[in-house]
């Protein structure tokens, strides 16, 4: 079964307008799944990851309902059929 990425609105110009993107099964980790996603839609890479390969500070990634911040980061395991959701963090309101 394919792994499905849920794409937030601001990133859909890099997926041809699609809100859901399926990648081939077989990715064992979030990192592998992201690499497959970004091979298909290269404009996503720099929007999700910085040049050190880290998930951007204000981007959250959920596998199912679990935030990867608390289950291994990009090493978090992924199973075929999983839904991975990219979400801009709820981190507004800071006075700067």
């Amino acid at each position: 079964m394919a792994i499905t990425f849920n794409i937030p609105g601001p990133l859909r110009e890099h997926t041809g307008g699609r809100s859901h993107v399926d990648i081939e099964p077989g990715a064992a980790t979030v990192a592998e799944a992201l690499a497959a996603l970004c091979r298909e839609h290269p404009g996503l890479r720099d929007r999700i990851l910085n040049e050190r390969g880290e998930v951007r500070e204000h981007v959250n990634i959920f596998v199912g309902e679990e935030s990867i911040r608390y289950c291994g980061g990009c090493s978090a395991p992924v199973k075929d059929g999983a839904a991975i959701t990219l979400v801009p963090a709820v981190s507004g309101g800071r006075m700067s």
Binding site: P10, L11, D46, R47, I48, R56, H58, V59, P88, A89
Partner: peptide, 9 residues
């Protein structure tokens, strides 16, 4: 030069 949650461009 612009920036938001999804990086700097």
């Amino acid at each position: 030069g612009s920036s938001n949650f999804f990086g700097i461009m």
